Each structure stands twice: as C-alpha cells, then as structure tokens.
Simulated assay, not measured.
Amino acid sequence: MDERRASPGLALLAAIMFLFLLAPVFVVLPLSFSGEAILAFPPTSWSTRWYSQLLVEPKIKDAFLTSLGLAFLTMTLSILIGLPAAYALVRLKVPGSEFMMSLFTAPLLLPSIVLAIAILVVFASLGLLGTFPGLLAGHLIVTLPYAVRVLSTTFSGLPIACEEAASTLGASPLMVFWRVTLPLMTPGIAATAALCFLVSFDEVVLSLFLSGPRVSTLPVEMFHYVETRTDPLIAALSVLLVGITLVVVVVVDRTAGLARTFAK
C-alpha cells in the first residue's frame, strides 16, 4: 500500500479543521470549572461546584438515568433485530433483498425534523406520546438503519470459506453461526453497539417531539435548562458527556479496533 506522507499544505489544512471541530470543547472545558453564577468566558474564578451541583439536580439525574436505560435498550434491540435482518439480506439472498435494504435504511435519508413529525402523527393516534415505550420505538426507528447497514457490511466482509469448511465438517447451520460467524463478527457488533448507543443517547430532535412531563431524556432536559438558566452547569454536563463518548470510543478501539471495525 502506498503510504506517502501528506504535503505540508494538506497537513496544515487538516490541523486547522481539527482545531475548528474541537473549538467548542476548548471553550466549554474551562467554563465547566467556572466559579461564576453565570456563563462568562474566560472565567474570572475557578471551582468544581457545578460538577457537584449535577449530583443534586433532580431533573438532570432522572433524565440521565432515563437516557442511559433508553440507550442501552435501544442498542440491545437494534442488534437483536438488525443481526438476523442483515444475515437474511446478505447470506440468504432473500427475494427483494435490495429493495428491503433500501427500505431499512430509508430513515437515514430523511431530515430529522421530517422524520420526527411523521412519527409524532403516528404515535399520537396510538397513545405513545410522552411514554417510555414510545421513546424506545422512536429511537429504534433511528438506530435500526445504522445497525442493519454496519452489520450487513460486516457480513459482506466475512470469509465465507470458513463457514463452508465448518459445514463440510458436519456442523449444523446454527452451530456454524454460533461458533464461526458470530466470533468473526465481533468488531462489527462492537461498532454497531457503540454507534446505536451514542445515537440514541444523543438524540434530541425526535425526543423533543416524543417526550413529555412523565418521561424526558437528558438532551431534552438540557435544552429546557438553557432556556431559563445561564449558569455553567450545562457546561459541566457537556464535558462529562464528551468524556463518556471518548470512553465508548476507546473501549471499541481496545476490544475490536476502530480500523478493523469501520474499514470493512
């Protein structure tokens, strides 16, 4: 493989783009340690009071636990539904597989606001607005296309000769899948889990339409919080969320390898 070094101009442009993307973090991080009662940059005093305040803010705590449970359930169901769907589309070559793949991934082509309004209209007639099952169903609509796409790509990249060799040695189709296919798919499953978890945990547009006074997610509570208050608590929460995202990415990298996972 040709591994020529990038030209200085291209390297400089890449560095500028990285700085541009990371600029909000460079602003939010010092703000989260501000000792002021309102947002002011740069801070004139320093404190960790806003991180402590997160532990006693009831709406933030409840919304965080709701988002955590919602993201975990969404991730689990996305894999349980997406894995057999991807297997059928790629390995079994069911009739109309290309059309079904397009149907599965269609939500990715719609603007978030359009998809949210469509789901709102349907869920309103079903009585699912402002309920946890409604949020879970809505998030599944968003994450399933990612799961099916990543898992289908993983199936396409697997060496089918290994499965055929296991079959010729007398293994049943279920045993082949469990002992050969599934272990080979570990990087793809890890990528799907991380992607679905983060997409669900960070989903705000759809959650704004589907949440209510009985159940609300963390991004929705953050949105409502900044409408009425201007203290650095949200900056502290944002830093924690960036940290959680980095932890998820590092775990995927250490267990499955980002290059192997996303370069199938």
Rank of each mutant, 00 (worst) to 15 (best):
A6K: 11
F20L: 15
L22G: 07
F26Q: 03
V27C: 09
V28C: 05
V28K: 10
G35R: 06
G35I: 05
A37T: 14
A40F: 12
V56Q: 04
P58L: 12
K61T: 15
A63V: 02
A63C: 01
F64V: 07
L65C: 06
L70A: 05
A71T: 07
T76I: 14
T76R: 00
L83P: 02
A85T: 15
R91C: 02
K93L: 11
M101Q: 08
F104D: 00
A106F: 15
L108I: 15
L108C: 12
L108R: 09
L128D: 05
P133D: 00
A137D: 04
I141K: 03
V142L: 11
T143K: 04
L144R: 03
L144T: 08
P145R: 01
Y146T: 05
Y146F: 12
V150K: 06
T153E: 08
G157I: 02
I160Q: 12
A161N: 11
E164H: 11
A171N: 11
P173C: 06
P173D: 00
M175R: 15
L184S: 09
M185N: 09
P187R: 05
A191D: 05
C196K: 02
L198A: 06
V199S: 04
V199F: 08
S200Y: 04
E203W: 07
S211A: 15
T217S: 03
M222H: 01
H224S: 14
V226H: 08
E227I: 05
T228C: 02
P232W: 02
P232C: 10
A235D: 01
A235C: 08
L237S: 03
L237K: 05
L237H: 01
S238H: 08
G243F: 13
T245A: 13
T245N: 10
V250F: 13
V250W: 11
T255G: 12
A263M: 13
